[in-house]
């Protein structure tokens, strides 16, 4: 799935979508949380709805 069209991102111990470079998409907090998961730091699992479809309305 291309990141351009993706609407939902999740991260936790099992799977991490995204990283610190994706601030515009995930928000600063979200991107940094994803990055922490990548660094092996324990973070409560999370979903991020990025509502692209809504903006098109």
């Amino acid at each position: 799935m291309s990141t351009e069209t993706k609407n939902v991102y999740v991260f936790g111990a099992a799977r991490t979508d995204g990283d610190a470079t994706m601030k515009n998409l995930l928000g600063g907090k979200g991107a940094n949380l994803a990055e922490m998961c990548r660094l092996g730091i324990l973070v409560p699992p999370r979903l991020h709805d990025q509502h692209r479809g809504v903006h098109r309305l």
Partner: peptide, 22 residues
């Protein structure tokens, strides 16, 4: 309602992931 309709599937998918993790 309009907003919920748009994002419902995404949010439900994400909540399912979080449920599995926890």
């Amino acid at each position: 309602d309009a907003v919920v309709k748009l994002i419902e599937a995404n949010v439900r998918e994400g909540v399912a992931f979080v449920e599995k993790e926890m």
